[in-house]
Design a protein around this nucleic acid. Structure first.
Lengths: 228, 228
DNA sequence: TCGAAAGCAAGAGCACTGCTCTCGTTTTGT
DNA sequence: ACAAAACGAGAGCAGTGCTCTTGCTTTCGA
């Protein structure tokens, strides 16, 4: 086995064990030494492949974002009639929640408290944008599809328009400001719900998470004016 | 100084230093040994007052919930005309976000990723309910105030009614299911927004957080049908 | 082809963590 | 007055991230 092959293989093995450990004990308890033991290495050898524990976590973040991105895009693509924006939206929402429930520690790593002193490098943000990208795409298609009959949305003043600057840049077609606000609220609501559910803040109030999530996303469909 | 006095004083000192350290370095990096050094004790002595690091964190969680609860209730009480439900709602939302921005580590401790293997004891949930209580109170007052002219809300089937069981128990007056759903969505949206903002997920999209938050909460007021 | 350079794994070690146990001392309650 | 409980200190255990040195091996250029 050549040196390059060996390196690729070891990197893969380390990441694999790291992912397994992440799923088991969560990001906080992830131990470089334990990973080293698992792959049959001494701890210092791992540092040949990842310069620090944070770099390893970054790699896991990217992988997780990509996995969630895959799930989301696959869910969207799974809807036959592309004009069924409501079905596509619901599929995307369900995919996010399903993935989060199946991979709670990974979700917490992505959308929970950021690790102290950690600033997400560029590599993670591009992977992260795949998820928001799914929402943006739906927003654009909804806009271009014609009349939008959602809940009445307040006008956005010039100041509010400016505040959305980054979103405008990410959009390929123009979307009205009030529609953007609605879509951002939907995005926030979905992730807020998943976080609240997963982090135990609905424990005392909601008895049936599945049903309530369906209710909420159904309401979002109505508010967004997604016609079936 | 009597033994009881000394105990109270030491407990207070430890908690004070712990809070300071929490604000500085965050929950993950909170060190019992460092706290011990700060208060002039050896680390093992701290365990006479808090049986474990997690118990100390629990105490901090309770304190933080209470502080946020104070801020929220104070903001609500600060609105003169009690019938101005929109102003009260906006005040509560702003109080939550302001407190979160002023105390990001404390907010992360409360609403971020739960610490691994940690299950919130009863003592924390009662303090936590003060915040949700503020929303519930507004929901009830809005309902009893008469006609609600918010965004149209879909009917809630029996299954959805059951899912809200815990919320019904917390309510003193009956609130229609569709209204409860709307209020839960508002609650989710507010905390979802604050989490997304604080945890850096809006970094690329939103340029002016203050303005956008006002826009969002303003929209929530309209959706909830809160008349001024 | 051969020797320098670079990559690699191992081990020792540093500074730190949460936590336990023991050992004197001091304060309590009976 | 005396036993019991509480207390602080210290040593120690098992674990952590990370660095540095020491040999060995693969790679690559003259």
């Amino acid at each position: 086995m050549s040196r390059a092959e060996n390196r690729a293989e070891q990197t893969r093995a380390i990441l694999e064990r790291a992912r397994a450990q992440l799923a088991e004990v969560g990001p906080a308890a992830l131990s470089v030494r334990q990973i080293a033991r698992d792959v049959g290495l001494v701890s210092s050898a791992v540092y040949r492949y990842f310069p620090s524990r944070d770099e390893l976590l970054t790699a896991l973040i990217v992988e997780s974002y990509d996995e969630l991105g895959d799930a989301v895009e696959q869910a969207d693509a799974g809807v036959r009639r592309r004009s069924d924006l409501d079905k596509r939206f619901l599929a995307v929402c369900a995919a996010i929640r399903d993935w989060a429930r199946a991979n709670p520690h990974e979700y917490a790593l992505l959308y929970g408290s950021p690790v102290p002193g950690y600033v997400a490098p560029q590599t993670t943000t591009t992977s992260a944008s795949r998820i928001t990208g799914a929402f943006l795409r739906l927003a654009q298609e909804s806009e271009t599809a014609g009349d939008v009959l959602g809940a009445p949305t307040g006008a956005v003043p010039p100041k509010g328009h400016q505040a959305l600057g980054g979103v405008h840049l990410a959009l390929e077609t123009t979307v009205a400001d009030d529609r953007i606000v609605r879509w951002l609220m939907a995005w926030t609501t979905v992730f807020g719900h998943v976080s609240m559910e997963l982090f135990g803040h609905m424990h005392r109030g909601i008895l049936d998470y599945d049903t309530h999530f369906q209710q909420v996303t159904g309401q979002l469909v109505a508010d967004l004016g997604l016609t079936g």
